[in-house]
């Protein structure tokens, strides 16, 4: 077995509040190989916070602790901002949910991609420009020249998200963290964006962490799925066996979705149990099993 790209053990993110300490992430551990790893949970389950903690984006008063957080054997836990900047963007990148808020509205798209690329890779402007055009072509933007000169408000949501992906991929990162990359998109555009991500993972051997609330989508798209509840991983599944989920929370999530092919009169609601907060995870061991392409 190859060494994992990213290895996380006992990750905790803590916020001090007036009511005492609040842990948004409570002891999360996983290994990421060259695969598509899905992280699923409802709002407040800590899935986005996990992604942000890996990138060192949790700001004080938030505190990140972990027994281990290693990128290819090298610890990236609580690095200084300067050192983190060398990793963030160039080795681990992130695509956020809404392209409207992640693109600079007063800069042309070309300038933004060129800026992001040169920040990490340096090089001459002409070369960076060529790279930006290549990246836009890689995410299947039809007229890259025109798009380079355009401003973000001239783009649709799907275009914006593809541009974000292009920008994040320009420095050739090893890991891409995609935080709800398709939630703001229409279903037909969603398929295109997922196809692009899928191809990039396959062709470049990238590791992808796909954060989403959409359990079915993740199961169809990813190789392996972590289910989070109240800041902890309650179940790890290989995506193909999602429908054999054993944890009542995972089962409840699956059942509460209306389905076109299986109509019901009433949707089953999810009775939450306190024991889920602290019970151990069910499923395969987190430490070893890395199905899919290793």
């Amino acid at each position: 077995m190859t060494d994992p790209l990213l290895s996380v053990r006992n990750l905790r993110v803590t916020f001090a509040t007036r009511q005492g300490e609040f842990q948004a992430v409570r002891g999360v551990g996983f290994d990421l190989g060259r695969e598509r790893l899905g992280v699923v949970g409802e709002s407040g389950s800590g899935k986005s916070m996990t992604g942000r903690a890996i990138l060192g984006l949790v700001r004080p008063p938030g505190r990140v602790t972990a027994d281990r957080m290693e990128l290819e054997g090298q610890s990236i836990l609580n690095l200084s901002e300067r050192k983190m900047r060398r990793i963030r963007g160039s080795r681990i990148s992130m695509v956020m949910q809404d392209p409207k808020f992640s693109l600079n509205p007063v800069m042309t798209i070309g300038d933004q991609i060129i800026e992001a690329y040169r920040l990490h890779a340096g090089g001459a402007k002409g070369q960076a420009r060529q790279k930006a055009l290549d990246m836009l072509a890689a995410v299947q933007i039809r007229e890259p020249e025109r798009v380079m000169a355009a401003y973000p408000h001239e783009m649709s949501g799907g275009m914006g998200q593809r541009i974000m992906i292009a920008m994040m991929l320009a420095p050739d990162p090893e890991i891409l963290i995609a935080d709800e990359p398709t939630s703001a998109l229409d279903v037909s555009v969603r398929t295109e964006v997922l196809n692009i991500l899928d191809r990039l993972v396959r062709d470049r051997g990238m590791g992808l962490i796909f954060i989403s609330h959409d359990l079915n989508l993740v199961a169809q798209f990813c190789d392996r799925v972590l289910i989070m509840y109240a800041g902890r991983i309650v179940e790890t599944l290989s995506a193909r066996t999602l429908h054999e989920a054993r944890h009542p929370y995972t089962q409840g999530l699956l059942n509460s979705l209306p389905r076109l092919d299986a109509p019901v009169d009433r949707l089953p609601v999810l009775p939450r149990q306190d024991s889920w907060r602290d019970g151990g995870p069910v499923g395969e061991s987190l430490e070893t099993d890395l199905p899919g392409g290793l």
Binding site: S43, H213, L215, L253, S256, R266, P268
Partner: peptide, 14 residues
């Protein structure tokens, strides 16, 4: 809304 909350609201509306 989250899917489990969505189920509750859809039931309520029904």
């Amino acid at each position: 809304l989250d899917v489990s909350v969505q189920a509750e609201i859809l039931n309520l509306l029904a």
